[in-house]
């Protein structure tokens, strides 16, 4: 199993009051599987994604990614897991502004220590970025930046891809094209994808959909 969550709970303190965002979430995701995570704003979708990526820690329950127990892992182990096994696609792209497209694309693969130039070149071609390799993020449109962010994630060949509304900033046609590509590449690499989305249309295109409401998941 690529991702496994058991009775995961998370409580935040907001304005001095505890707010229980997740109340015992269970979820499993296998290789080649694509799962859409939907829910209303503030329902805890991003929090759940952050817990799966080891960016935040659960208060209760158990999380396992690619055989690694996140609950017991220290910061260094979590960082290593993010480097090697997990790929994150952020809603805000989070590209490195001082690096050009080519360097951004290769960045995570280099960080993980397995850069594959041919694979990165192929990714750039398929994402339509080949002519933009020398540009800097500030010189790109939102859609182009999002494609670079997806390419950066896929270049490292992660086992698990966690995407937070990756097409939220794109028009429908571009969003569809990007999702097509992502699913294609996930299938080729035998990876797993957990994608947060507000769009029922996009959610329907993934192999499974789970809905977060009241801090619990419903299929």
């Amino acid at each position: 199993m690529l991702l496994s969550l058991e009775q995961v709970g998370k409580t935040y303190v907001s304005a001095g009051m505890p707010v229980e965002v997740l109340r015992g979430v269970d979820l499993c995701l296998g290789r080649g599987e694509t799962v859409a995570l939907t829910g209303e704003s503030g329902s805890g979708k991003s929090t759940l994604l952050h817990l799966c990526a080891g960016l935040d820690r659960a208060d209760r329950g158990h999380i396992e990614v690619a055989g690694h127990d996140l609950t017991a892992a220290n910061d260094a182990a979590l960082a290593a897991l993010r480097r090697t096994a997990v790929g994150l696609v952020f809603q805000q792209f989070n590209l490195i502004p001082s690096l050009n497209v080519a360097a951004n694309l290769a960045f995570q693969a280099r960080l993980a220590g397995h850069e594959d130039d041919a694979w990165i070149k192929a990714l750039a071609d398929r994402l339509g970025l080949s002519d933009l390799l020398g540009r800097y993020p500030e010189q790109l449109s939102g859609g182009q930046q999002q494609r670079v962010a997806i390419g950066r994630t896929l270049a490292a060949r992660p086992a698990l891809i966690l995407a937070d509304e990756p097409t939220g900033n794109l028009d429908e046609a571009t969003g569809d094209a990007v999702l097509d590509l992502m699913m294609e590449l996930v299938a080729e690499a035998g990876a797993g994808l957990l994608m947060v989305t507000h769009s029922p249309r996009l959610a329907a295109r993934l192999s499974r959909r789970v809905h977060l409401s009241g801090g619990r998941l419903a299929a």
């Binding site: 290593a80 993010r82 997990v86 490195i96």
Partner: peptide
């Protein structure tokens, strides 16, 4: 700061 956050999110240990 955004770069630091990204680097850490991509797996660079804080230390």
């Amino acid at each position: 700061r955004p770069m630091f956050r990204t680097l850490r999110a991509l797996g660079l240990p804080l230390r």
